[in-house]
Simulated assay, not measured.
Amino acid sequence: MNRIVVVGASAAGLAAAETLRREGHTGTVTLIGEEPTAPYDRPPLSKQILAGEWETERVSLRTEEQLDGLKLDLRLGTAATGLDTDARLVHLTDGDQIDYDGLIVATGVRPRRLPGQGGHVLRTLHDALDLRERLGPGKRLVVVGAGFLGAEAAAVAQGLGCEVVLLEPAPVPLAHAVGEQVGRVLSRAHREHGVDLRTGVAVAAVSDDGVTLADDTRIEADEVLVAIGSLPNTAWLDGSGLDLADGLVCDQYSAAAPGVYGAGDVARWHNPLFGVSMRIEHRTNAAEQGMAAARNLLYPDARKPFAPVPYFWSDQYDMKIHAYGYLRGHDTVEIAEGDLGQRRFLATYRKEGRLVGALAVGMPPKAIRPWRQALLTEER
């Protein structure tokens, strides 16, 4: 295997490229990134960058010298437009074609949009900086979607002195992921900080100066942020013969086809630890899967299943939220310790009696770490 191509230059793609070099691959490693910016970290975009607490340099994942040390064929500012798995060619927007012996797909996701013209999304560094310039005292921000991204942005905007309206179609924000009890706790935090949280409302259209609800109600705003989830970037793989179903479908080794692996937000793979197919949009998973995919690609006779305990975190106001496991689809939530009213507690999640996750709010990290080990050893 001489030439390896990694499509996607964010956390998963960079981790894959670094692992290839660390594991001794001396051939060509081409790293393709749609953005002109060198690889950077995305979680701070809705927190420290949006709040103006960090300079942009702090989100860079590696220095220029570190990238140079990897001796990459680095193609930034261009995107993959097609894949020919028979000829083993990746087609680029600039018209170039790159042949490969091995391919790692790490193209991530793109924000979902709503009908209408206008509104912001928050996925790239440019998105965060553009929105940050428009926020401040006296500004009114409408956030559509009270998931983790929308909730973090709402909390930051409130701290910047904005009047914030947070819209959510579900009766309880995040109930599908963290349960109604925990969802209500997070909702109460927004309201106590002065955010106008409205649940059970659907947005029909977005414009530069507000949103129109499904019942034709108009909500005026200086700025609108649409945070209603993401779609995996797989359009460039249409016609490739690869299995696409809410992501690039991979097996337990993160393999999508011979010589083709998926990593990060775009990959839907079978996690043998939980016994289900999952696609995880979390920073830690992106880096871990990038490394695992690179090793399995290099050493096909010694492949190891990618079987992690997913981990994510969120910062909202003074709340630190940490979670391990795969909480979606749970049927039981128990408060293992702490107090919901004080927003300091640890909740456990089970499905059919089996532990599938744990989430802590306002607790030190060491309080939840033992639950990761419990998830690793849980019989399923």
Results as ranks from 00 to 15, higher is better:
I219V: 15
I219M: 15
E220N: 12
E220M: 02
A221M: 11
A221V: 06
A221Y: 07
D222N: 14
D222C: 09
E223L: 00
E223D: 14
V224E: 04
V224D: 07
V224Q: 08
L225K: 10
L225S: 04
L225F: 02
L225M: 09
V226P: 13
V226G: 12
A227R: 11
I228A: 05
I228G: 00
I228Q: 06
G229K: 06
G229E: 05
S230N: 14
P232S: 08
P232M: 03
P232R: 01
N233I: 01
N233C: 13
N233P: 07
N233Y: 13
T234Q: 04
T234H: 01
A235K: 06
A235E: 15
A235S: 15
W236N: 10
W236E: 13
W236C: 12
W236F: 15
L237F: 12
L237R: 00
G239F: 05
G239S: 05
G241D: 02
G241F: 10
G241W: 08
G241T: 12
G241M: 07
D243T: 15
L244C: 07
L244P: 07
L244S: 01
A245M: 03
A245P: 03
A245Y: 10
G247W: 01
L248A: 02
L248I: 02
L248W: 05
L248Q: 05
V249I: 04
V249T: 04
